[in-house]
Amino acid sequence: MAELVQHIINGVAAGTIYALVALGYTMVYGVLKLINFAHGDVMMVGCYAGYASAHTMGREHSTSFLGVTVVFLVAMGMCALIGFLVERFAYRPLREKPRLVALITAIGVSFAISYGFQLKLGVGALTILPGASPRAFPEVITPSDWLVVGDPSYPDIVLRNTQVISVLIAVALMAALQVLVFRSRFGVAMRAVSFDHRTSALMGIPVDRVIALTFMLGSALAAGAGILYAIKDTRIEPLMGTQVGLKAFVAAVIGGIGHVPGALVGALLLGLVEEFVVGYGSSTWRDAVAFGFLIVVLLFKPEGLFGRVTAEKV
């Protein structure tokens, strides 16, 4: 029983991080009907931006509220900028082209970022790109156990502060997104654009700007997720984005791509499934089961758990 509770704690903590990344996929898919395969790599850049800002502040091993906030804001700002650039220069010129063209471009952008980041680049003492080798992410939040149930040397259940903080931050970001999408003028515009670009323009909505902002928003959420992931995993490297990104994409598809609460549920399910596989089976099987789960969901519900079947108009 205690073991089960422990796995649920770990699964939920991992799932909320996936959820933040999955939201970016789902939002971009909503407005552009494009799977932005570079999304995970944007997240990776966010991790490095957080890494750089923590080092610059000299806060590798100290927790301060201000320090953590700065790390998050720098990473989110950096990713918003990259999301903007990717949309403006890679996807916007292809807006009227067949969707496959944009999809292949997305894969290209993903490779360009993840492999480009393996270069070592610096000017004098200033490092711009740190190179391919993995880095230890600074302990911006000093880990500690908040709740220990059972014998302290062989505890039954451990609740770590990073898990709680991670879930709280993720939930706060998602709540903010929900309010933005469903309660604000921009949110209505975004949902209108996701339904029909041309009619949206007839309403006076600046469609290009709405799409750009959606990319920036999704990328900023990915940056938040990236920092949380890096705090949990403590290791960052240029190829991490592909792996986390792919998992989050799976979560978004399981929930029903384009559906915001669906992404959350899909991500939590995926986090729990992975955790159970690792806990009760073998970690070797983790990824296989995660993708197998995707196949099973798609076999029985191709539109995802919450997706609506839309009849194609001819």
Binding site: V188, A189, S200, M203, G204, I205
Partner: peptide
């Protein structure tokens, strides 16, 4: 929301 979009600007 449809009506509000008509008055978007």
């Amino acid at each position: 929301e449809n009506l509000d979009l008509g008055a978007y600007l």
